[in-house]
Design a binder for these strands. Sequence first.
DNA 1: ATGCACCCCGTACCATACTACGGTGTCAAC
DNA 2: GTTGACACCGTAGTATGGTACGGGGTGCAT
Lengths: 133, 133
Amino acid sequence: MALTIGQVAAQCGVGVETIRFYEREGLIAQPSRPESGFRKYPPDAVRWVRFIQRAKALGFSLREIKELLSLRVDSAKTCDAVKGRAEAKITDIEKKIGHLQEMKRALVKLTVACRGKRPTSDCPILEALGEGD
Amino acid sequence: MALTIGQVAAQCGVGVETIRFYEREGLIAQPSRPESGFRKYPPDAVRWVRFIQRAKALGFSLREIKELLSLRVDSAKTCDAVKGRAEAKITDIEKKIGHLQEMKRALVKLTVACRGKRPTSDCPILEALGEGD
DNA sequence: ATGCACCCCGTACCATACTACGGTGTCAAC
DNA sequence: GTTGACACCGTAGTATGGTACGGGGTGCAT
């Protein structure tokens, strides 16, 4: 049931070096290393790496992802601090969702304008994006 | 009403060099250049740069942002192609929104677990993230 | 007409996040 | 028991997205 680094990499669609890199950077835990020195990963390792990939695609830096993942580690210890950081991340995520919805609305508007007559604005994408922060 | 590069930069919270960089990379249009050679920007330039910043924070690469912005340029010409690309971007954005909502749900769950007794899983963040693509 | 802030350009440098390389060791199959 | 695929490590190189620097020119305020 344990996986080699190559198997984890293949299942995540990344290179072996990427996994080692994440380990060096402290994004994923050190796996067990029986005699030979070969890393042995639990199946969950695949989910961790996929989570990292996904979070990256959503605009989080590795530093932020590390913070996200670390929310679990000390949860037994400093519950209030963890809760605070989690809530900050939630706010951050809600902002991102809002911005994406604006972008989506703008693009939908664009396709609609496309369907009918020519768009009236010379930039439908920007047009639908307010100045909101 | 026209702005200097420094004014645009200040209003967007970026450096002058960043604007010139975006121009070199074709993300923003060449502004007019009266006699002196100084760039003169229309007020809208601020919105363009802000759009770029926002899109970056949402995980789009400059290449993708360029594509997003270019959807406006040829809209009069190749309407069908534009519509197709816009629809692809919409799908992409919907996926991002979905992933962010999953992350948010996971974090909310974490804060709730925090409030009451200890979390049951040893990783509440991952726990709420399915294997969905 | 002389500052001084701001603009020009090109080039070089930086941080982030990998990716490749080279030399060596391991393991499993034949 | 040897061969081939895969693992180990450290170091170096790459792509992206800026950021800084140096040596100049401009423009307006005093």
